[in-house]
Design a protein around this nucleic acid. Structure first.
Length: 577
RNA sequence: GCCCUUGUAGUUCAAUGGAUAGAACUGCGGACUUCUAAGCCGUCGAUGUAGGUUCGAUUCCUACCAAGGGCACCA
């Protein structure tokens, strides 16, 4: 509809001999000002040397000569806005359209034929899955789904640091505090990979502290680090293989819970990328990279004054993260050849990534425009509550578990089977966390209040789910209610719900064009609120309701839209809760 | 010091340069023998400071203030 209005405005301008101008068509905040509104008259008032309202009137008269039937009337208002009011038929048709499209409702083909790769989550084996990974995952998954809804073939990639100092620290910790060979305090190898991974994470944390405080331990760990790189020590290799396997398996459990499926051939590892990257860096030494104090560096400020120099290969001859990133990017383009390669990380990687991307674009100029880096802020905690319910350090996993447990407690009031309660608490717990990450625009930090944010009032994931469940509940009850023989009558009045429903595809497009998932979250919350208002004002399943069939279609259309929208946020829609 | 993010109600967040700056939480006040009250209705309350561009600025530009991040061998 938006395109259509833009089109008739352009035609009107042509008929009035006005040069083409940049104008907007948008939804006014207040529905009193119509369903669509344009500022075209104000934009070209100067050009026509008259005041905006006169221009607006002129354009209005031109538009009225041939008005599409979906538009009931056009009005001039305010400083010179032209407002469009849609007809009852338009809204009724849009409900039908939603019911026809079902799970495809909201999709578009902006990216048809394109291949888009999204890399996100990026946890490191041997370290806990922390809250930052949770954020990156929620955002990356949502971006992937928005891209998918825009018609692209979507490739989900994950990049994991299986070499580096953190690995050496964890291995040192395991050797010092006990290996899985039956010593005291050891994890039972029969335990779940998640529990074994947790033990490895603890060893990592302890060793990490010792690294900072004890000089001789620091040396030992550095020595282990070299051995891991060279694979020169049989015992270390064994621990390494076990630890890597177990932590990666534990991550898979979390991905499953979060609803992410990476492409099986797109799990990239630093241990692979460092060799590829090193070769590229060394073969461009003297051209792009320089030697300096024994290290190999890239002086990015020579190309862009806002960038800075970074080390790519250390004076000890080890490749840094920068070099591995070059290997990764080149591998992605060579193996998968995406039209666009999107990488999602926290903001701390922002500056560094610009430098790396500059270096890559000098080697492969054709990649430059195809690389996109999305950054997000950090999750912080309100009022210093830094520990989880059990008193441990909060990891991404513990936060998830706590969230699910809180839901489970709330579910006690409900008459549901234990199995239902367990499943629902998983779906709702994940939703609470994901929504609190996705409701804000990227960029700024997220303040996470442990007590309040998982409260499910108002602006929350569970609120959206609960609203969907209410709708579903009506649809279920309607099956036993005699309504199918009755005629489909359409009420004259258009509800606020209908005035939002048809906008869903526009929201998806907008969200894609800015790569900002929060627009979907904001829209769904407004939509849920409208539904709850409608629900509160309307008794649907009663004999006196002569619009019963229309109302049921409306509920169905709402349910479908909410379900598709929640999907885009990476959130499942429970059938009951 | 230089560079990148970000400053909106008591709190947490919205607002492709547009109309009276929207929500949620909290506070206060309501409705309900009703399809799930994790819900609904009403109400109090905000653009960091100073300039500039514009018919019009929360949005763009400049300076300042404040928070977070990055600036050579960690990732």
């Amino acid at each position: 509809m938006k395109e259509q209005i833009e089109k008739i405005i352009k035609e009107a301008l042509k008929n009035l001999d006005v040069e083409e101008v940049n104008f907007n068509v948008e939804h006014p905040e207040d529905v009193k000002n119509g369903d669509y509104s344009t500022n075209v008259a104000m934009v070209c008032a100067k050009q026509l040397k008259t005041n905006p309202r006169e221009v607006a009137e002129k354009i209005k008269r031109e538009l009225e000569k041939d008005l599409p039937k979906q538009i009931e009337k056009v009005e001039v208002a305010g400083a010179g806005f032209i407002n469009f009011y849609l007809s009852r038929d338009f809204f009724s048709d849009s409900i039908k359209n939603i019911l026809d499209k079902k799970d495809d409702w909201g999709k578009n083909d902006l990216l048809k034929g394109q291949k888009i790769m999204v890399e996100y989550t990026d946890p490191n084996p041997f370290k806990p899955f922390h809250i930052g990974h949770l954020m990156t995952n929620a955002i990356g998954e949502s971006v992937s789904r928005v891209v998918e809804f825009s018609g692209a073939e979507t490739i989900r990639a994950n990049y994991q640091g299986d070499v580096g100092l953190h690995v050496a620290k964890a291995i040192y910790g395991l050797m010092k505090f006990g290996l899985p060979t039956g010593q005291a305090g050891m994890p039972d190898l029969n335990k779940s990979s998640s529990e074994q991974a947790q033990y490895i994470g603890e060893c990592y944390s302890k060793a990490s502290n010792l690294y900072e405080t004890d000089e001789s331990i620091k040396k030992e760990i550095d020595e282990i680090n070299k051995k891991v790189y060279r694979k020169s020590d049989e015992e270390i290799n064994k621990i390494y293989e076990w630890g890597r396997k177990v932590t990666l398996l534990a991550f898979e459990d979390i991905y499953k819970l979060l609803g992410t499926k990476f492409n099986p051939d797109c799990y990239y590892f630093e241990s692979m990328m460092m060799h590829i990257g090193e070769e590229i860096v060394r073969s461009n030494l003297g051209k792009i990279f320089k030697e300096s104090d024994g290290a190999i560096i890239f002086p990015a400020e020579e190309y862009d004054s806002k960038l800075h120099t970074r080390v790519f290969i250390t004076s000890q001859g080890l490749p840094t993260y920068e070099t591995k990133e070059i290997g990764l990017t080149v591998t992605k383009f060579e193996k998968k050849n995406p039209d666009t390669s999107i990488v999602v990380t926290a903001i701390e990687q922002g500056e560094y990534m610009k430098v790396v991307q500059k270096a890559i674009s000098l080697i492969h100029p054709d990649y430059e425009k195809r690389m996109k880096h999305i950054t997000h802020g950090m999750m912080k905690f309100a009022s210093g509550k830094m520990s989880s319910r059990k008193g441990n350090i909060i990891t991404g996993e513990s936060l998830l578990r706590d969230s699910m447990n809180i839901v489970l407690e709330k579910m006690n009031e409900r008459e549901l089977s234990e199995e239902d309660k367990k499943n629902i608490s998983e779906i709702v717990g994940v939703s609470a966390l994901k929504y609190s990450i996705l409701k804000s625009s990227l960029g700024s930090d997220i303040i996470y209040d442990f007590d309040k944010s998982i409260s499910f009032d108002g602006d929350s994931g569970p609120y959206l789910q609960y609203t969907a469940v209410r709708a579903n509940s009506i649809l279920e009850k309607a099956k036993g209610f005699n309504h199918e023989d009755r005629p489909l009558l359409t009420p004259e009045e258009v509800t606020g719900l209908e005035k939002l429903l048809y906008q869903f595809p526009e929201v998806v497009e907008h969200s894609y064009s800015l790569l900002e998932p929060h627009h979907i979250a904001t829209y769904l919350t407004a939509l849920a609120s409208e539904f709850n208002t409608f629900y509160g004002n309307t008794k649907i399943l009663v004999d006196e309701n002569k619009y019963i069939n229309y109302h049921l279609n409306l509920v169905k259309a709402f349910y479908q839209t909410m379900k598709n929208g929640l999907y885009l946020l990476g959130i499942k829609t429970p059938e009951k809760m």
